[in-house]
Structure formats: structure tokens, C-alpha cells
Amino acid sequence: MADIKFSEDTLALANKIIARYPEGKQKSALLPLLHLAQAEFDGWLSPATMQYVASLLQIQEVEVYEVASFYSMFNLKPVGKCLIEVCRTSSCWLRGANEIIEHLENKLGIKEGQTTPDGMFTLKTVECLGSCGSAPMMQIGAQYHENLSYEKVDGILDTCKAEGTRKTYLDKVVVDKY
């Protein structure tokens, strides 16, 4: 997998991030760079992607892996184009998160943790995303979808399907309209 390499723009951004930290502390850029890599290389961190990030920061590959495996937002296996993350903790549970999860499972024909055969959706349940006042909610890429109802969920899935694009945490979205 020699073709794992950031685009020119991304590499420039990565270098800008690396330059923030004091001399010898470039490892601080690891989490930001893994985010850039995951967004650019199919939504997950393959061993080749992690090797590439290690080479950029001049650190051991295992240092990348031990970090990538610690944080829940880094995917170490391939995921669908739209990774649906549904919050299931207290406030969301109080306002019907379990029913939203069940609805998603029925609608997509998959269970939590699985990916649809067309590679479009992966369904994941996650812990509190800080959207307790607008529960129940789910996150797809950078976008928070809040105050969910079955109809709203159906509409979101339809839109995702029609767009057909991979959603990432780096997407420019407007969540709070002020």
C-alpha cells in the first residue's frame, strides 16, 4: 500500500499543525493527524495508514497503534460511508434512544455494530455526545442530528443515500443555527 499519502493540501495542514508544538514534542500532533488520515483514507485507520502517520511524526508504529486503539472515534476496521453513531446514555435513553436504535436496525436491516451490504451505513451506539437537551440524537460525520423522531431518522437516511458521499468528522457543517 505504497499509495497512502496525504494530498498536497492535507500535508500542508498537517505540517502547520506539527509546527504548533515545541521542538521535540511533535508527537502532540498525533491525534489531529489521525483525524486527517481517517477522513482522507476511507474513514478508517488501516495498518498502512498508521505506518504513514508514524513516518510523518518520526515515531514508532506501535506508538500510533496504542493511541489509535484507545480513542473511540478512530476506526480500526472499515466502516460504511455513513457511520451512524447513536447516543444511548441516560438523557438520551430517557427520551427514547433505545427505540431510535431499534428503528434504525429495522430500517437498515442490520444490527448494532454491523454495516449494510452496500457499504453505505454502519450502525454504532456511543456514549454521551453532549446533546442531552436535544435528545434523542445521533451523529453522522461532523453533523449532529437532534430531537429525533422516526420520520426525521427516515429523512436523514434518505438524504445520506441520495448524496452517496462519505461523511467525515472534518465536514464543514452548521449544527447550531444562530
Binding site: 502532540s28 491525534l31 489521525l34 480513542y71 473511540s72 472515534m73 454521551c128
Partner: peptide, 8 residues
Amino acid sequence: VQVGAGAY
């Protein structure tokens, strides 16, 4: 701004 990656 430094971004985390999902860890309470």
C-alpha cells in the same frame, strides 16, 4: 485548538 478523539 487541539482536538481529542472520544474518551471521557
